[in-house]
Amino acid sequence: MNTFIKKAHWLLMLTAFALIAVTGCEDNPADPGDDNEQELITSVTLNLTELDAAGNPTATTVSVNFKDPDGTGGVAPTIGSLTLKAGKNYKGTIALLDETKNPAESITAEVKAEAEAHQFFYTAKDGAVGRLAVTITDKDANNRPVGLEYTVAISAGANATGKLNVVLSHYDPASKKDGVTRSDESDIDIDFTVNIAN
């Protein structure tokens, strides 16, 4: 028995050491795979159409862009600025794209499909406070605001420069309650520079 154990003992250990040195790991780190399919928003565009005195759309449109083609980190994003006329009203939409996909994927459609779990917040900041007001015009199935469609009212007055802050709040299904409270999860949070001109 003892000699058997003795032999088995050495044999087992030698086998174990041979294993560690010779066998490949059963997995293969050398192939990092290609399923880095993180969904991103790389482009946010506000499209505004000027309204006439009767509230009908005119041919004048303005738009502003946020672009971060490589996503978070890496090259810093480019953020455009917006020039709006004092005393005018605008009708607006927002478009979200994932341009890392080919063709670019519309995230707007996903937000629309999950409207009960999302809401945009448009807030005037700095010099735009008191001059720029956004009213959300679209509603989700629970009759709460969404913000894919909205109107912008610019009050008359001197030229000014400020910011329009756009936030997309993501809610757990039950927590979008009053259309006023933001969630603790912002999918978007961008400041666009706004110039108010006469």
């Binding site: 946010v44 946020f66 971060d68 996503g71 978070t72 980190g73 994003p77 978007i188 949070d189």
Partner: peptide, 8 residues
């Protein structure tokens, strides 16, 4: 800060 679509 690092600027992203979700804020800074």
């Amino acid at each position: 800060p690092t600027l992203t679509v979700r804020g800074a």
